[in-house]
Design a binder for these strands. Structure first.
Lengths: 362, 362
DNA sequence: TTGTATGCGTTATCAT
DNA sequence: ATGATAACGCATACAA
């Protein structure tokens, strides 16, 4: 009969027996047994910077390799209180801009040795229900590309889950956040277009419940008001291509004619507006009508468009968000740092950005 | 002195003490204490379909509510061997097509009560390293929008992690998968264009390491060969906009003139090719040159383009993938079901799809 | 450096 | 229907 520990047992046989016979997954105990060390020794081998002798490390690693052992994150997180997981809250991608953000954020989160757990939602108003799902996963932190209410932010704090708000400026609350100043961006675009001599504006704003959309709209409106220009014609869309054409028609109906310039709440609507103007209304853009958007999504740069738009430095923002969250995770005491990025004007060729030569000059 | 359990103690005080005093997170024990039941009773209340009396259920839930208790998924998964998590392997989104797939897949995974853990990679060849990360998270399953090697598939099996391959047809292996037949799609497109009288073709294929890209290319090439048409001029791109222009230039250089039709490995390259042809080479598309792509990404449908392309039913595919994985998770015995979807031709207006009126007809 | 023993928070098994 | 108790797989304090 084989005793429990025959000194010269075939380790290969042991291993095969352990792994093949049972349905069980291999644990650190299995590795320990095979390597002839204690379970804690195995554990230490997988903890960077733990004190293990070279010899045991080698034997443990060999055994682990042989068994295909990988530490169980669930068990580990139970004791370390770290899941190496970050919740990524993001509203659905009809925007064509979120995919880029999503990809960048995922990338950056990975750089910090964590993985993104994806929580997509149809509308930003679904955040509430989503959050309840988030908690049980014991994420180390949350990056929210959505507007949270004060109560929701408070709950994050209460649960001691670090939170970084991405691309949303929650003015009054002191939560960590990374964003472009959309209000300022709206002002900037309006100012630039006004300086070029445009007087009658149209604005195709994004959905009313979107903070980004309303900031952009407010910024533009306020600036135009300050400059003493006529009130802009206003239409609302839902950030999609079709909204651009629809918004343009509404604005023309309101004014009885095409405006001098149209500011769209994002690029996709701007492209829709542009195409409708050019291909269906036969308007000369930018000769008769200037069109501008926000985001500098990839297609805005294509030869057929070359859209005038404001770029957000998404990559830098994603980097900042991940870094900020990581620092918050490491030192939960950290204050509510806000990192503001400046949008960059892409001049493009769909808006006239210099004054027309005047008749006087002739 | 207060005893351990004073019958008429202030439950509110107890609760505050428990939650405020310590840094600890609230556990089912806390809830049990507050509700005056055993911990296992609490556990049962959070398990759908367990046998609990209405009375205790109510008291437990009230206590849980008061404490903000949420079951800890890590602890749960340790014993249930379910993390309610699915790994989503996806190569980076320069493709402009993956974002849609990603969003849909996430959506559908959620429908099954699970969440997507995101593993993005720069290139499909990174799958190997990524997989090692995947295992430790104890995911319930894997959806891979990338090509896996036989060894990698075998490892999934060995670890008993259900796997569904998305949008990749691994011909020889019997792994569960959901895909369009890209080879057939390539043939279909080539056949249709050839029937319209195009003779000299150019192909701007996607990256050589992409299975999808090479299937499309092979399909088109094979069909042209079968039809006895001249060998197509071939260029390779990396699925991005710039590759379209670059590929077109290469092909023209090879042939000494523009081909009759160009088949591009995806829409983004097709749009790049189209724009280059129209705006820089001043070619009439589809008068002098037909251009077609694959995927029917959103911009392909915009007024400026109206691209001839083949649509993949991504939503249906995502639904199928999630369902398939879910069934595999519930019944690991399941065979390697494959679900093939047919691409749908979007006729568009960038390729001539009917024969030219012949001189004879005049 | 190494091994022993304990606990993380839950579910599951078994009595009652 | 309910409560005691034993896992689940790992990390850590402590003793050696």
């Amino acid at each position: 009969m084989t005793k429990t520990k025959p000194p010269q047992a075939l380790s290969a046989a042991d291993q095969k027996a352990a792994i093949l016979r049972e349905d069980r997954r291999v644990t650190s105990y299995d590795v320990a047994m095979l390597a002839g060390v204690s379970q804690s020794a195995v554990s230490r081998c997988f903890k960077p910077g733990a004190s293990v002798s070279k010899a045991t490390y080698a034997r443990v690693m060999q055994a682990a390799e042989g068994l295909g052992y990988i530490p169980n994150a669930a068990a580990r997180s139970l004791i370390t209180r770290r899941s190496n997981t970050v919740a990524l809250l993001i509203s659905n991608a009809s925007n064509l801009y979120y995919p880029e953000a999503l990809s960048e954020l995922s990338q950056q989160i990975t750089r910090h040795g964590k993985r993104a757990l994806l929580f997509t939602m149809q509308s930003e108003s679904d955040v509430g229900e989503i959050l309840n799902d988030v908690w049980q996963y014991q994420v180390d932190g949350v990056i929210a590309a959505a507007a949270l209410s004060e109560a929701q932010i408070a709950e994050c704090e209460r649960r001691r889950v670090p939170l970084v708000v991405f691309n949303r400026h929650l003015r009054d609350s002191h939560v960590a956040s990374v964003f472009c100043d959309q209000y300022e961006a709206g002002r900037m675009l309006a100012a630039r277009l006004a300086a070029a001599g445009h007087r009658q504006f149209g604005i195709i704003a994004g959905p009313e419940e979107s903070v980004v959309a309303s900031e952009r709209r407010r910024g533009a409106s306020d600036k135009l008001l300050e400059l003493g220009l006529p009130a802009p014609a206003l239409a609302y869309g839902c950030f999609d291509y079709g909204s651009g054409a629809h918004g343009l028609r509404q604005i023309i109906a309101q004014l009885g004619r095409a405006p001098d310039a149209i500011i769209c709440g994002n690029d996709v609507m701007a492209l829709g507006c542009l195409d409708h103007a050019r291909h269906e209304l036969r308007l000369d853009v930018p000769g008769e009508l200037s069109v501008a958007g926000f985001d500098a999504v990839e297609p805005s740069n294509w030869l057929s468009y070359n859209l005038t738009t404001l770029r957000q430095p998404i990559q830098k923002m994603a980097l900042a968000a991940a870094d900020l969250l990581a620092s918050l995770i490491d030192a939960p005491c950290g204050g509510a740092e806000k990192r503001v990025f400046a949008p960059q004007l892409i001049e493009g060729a769909t808006a006239r950005l210099t004054p027309r030569p005047t008749a006087l000059a002739a």
